[in-house]
Amino acid sequence: MRWWVSIGAVVAAVSAAGMVGGLAAPNRAAPIADRNDDAMAVDVELVLAVDVSYSMDVDELAVQREGYAEALRSSDFMKTLKTGPNGRIAVTYFEWAAASDQKIILPWQLIDGPESADAVATEIMNAPLRRASRTSISGAINFAMPLFEQNAYHGLRRVIDISGDGPNNNGEPVTLARDAAVEKGVVINGLPIMVKEPSYSTMDIENLDYYYEDCVIGGPGSFVVTIKSRDKFKEAIRTKLVMEVAGRTPPHRIVPVADRAQTPRVSCLVGEKIWQDRWGR
């Protein structure tokens, strides 16, 4: 589902009655096996997977970083964090491009208050910016999955948060990676970035939000928050982060899954086709 509600409405709803308010009841993922009994309990194990392909310009990369850092430091995030049963989350942040190109910027860290949130935000901001070729959302999902088994936390939910400005054009089809992750109880949410007009040179597509809805996100309560203007960049990131920590779905189902046609509105292989048409391989 897509979501356009402001961050203020989200926080007000979450805070009004602990974790109830005007938001829908939490959608828990299927139970995840092989948990470590000695692991620290957290409300969510959150993987932030951020696109750094060449279609993202340097300014977008910088604003994206700042958006995550500011969101983690915000009072909205902190209020939501403390409404959870454990009052803490575990988070890791990595950047991705091609199927074989992922770089962890922030190893798993606990956020349980303002000091730890600020430390995580600082570490994200201090990492050098980089760009790389190709766009493999499937590669990002496949890279994220083992990270859940490599941390010292036991989350009530496991979430992969993917942001990007183009379709998968490298690695296995994105739907295969998505379905494998969802089968293991992981929820995938999306942040499609649509601040520029689609360009053949960067292999962008129209209706990237539909592509993310139909081909990328998955799992109970999964959702998309779309960015269509640069001045909404940071607010959208903060909105999505608050929703993920709250474990809530948007109050209005804009595109109910049950109402969708069986065939995706945008081909889930559109990125691969564009690459083939352009480069012949």
Results as ranks from 00 to 15, higher is better:
M1R: 02
G8Q: 02
V14P: 00
S15P: 01
A16T: 14
V20P: 02
V20N: 12
L23S: 00
L23C: 00
A24Q: 01
A29V: 04
D37W: 12
D43M: 09
D43A: 11
V44E: 00
S53G: 06
D59S: 06
V63I: 14
G67P: 01
G67M: 05
E70V: 03
R73I: 01
D76N: 13
D76W: 13
D76V: 02
K82S: 11
T83N: 00
G84P: 01
R88S: 11
I89P: 03
V91C: 09
A98L: 09
K103M: 04
I105D: 06
Q109H: 05
G113H: 12
A119L: 07
V120D: 12
I124R: 05
N126D: 14
R131L: 06
T135V: 08
Y153E: 11
Y153H: 10
H154R: 15
L156F: 04
D161G: 04
D161N: 10
A177S: 14
A181L: 00
K184L: 03
G190A: 11
G190R: 00
I193Y: 11
I193D: 04
V195Q: 08
K196W: 15
K196I: 12
S199T: 05
S201T: 10
D204N: 05
N207V: 08
Y211W: 10
Y211T: 07
Y212N: 00
C215R: 06
V216A: 06
G219Y: 00
G219N: 12
S222L: 06
F223I: 08
V225C: 04
V225A: 10
K228H: 09
I237N: 01
R238L: 11
M243C: 02
V245I: 15
V245K: 06
V245Q: 09
G247T: 03
P251T: 01
H252I: 15
V255L: 15
V257R: 15
P264C: 12
R265T: 02
V270E: 13
V270D: 10
G271A: 13
R278N: 11
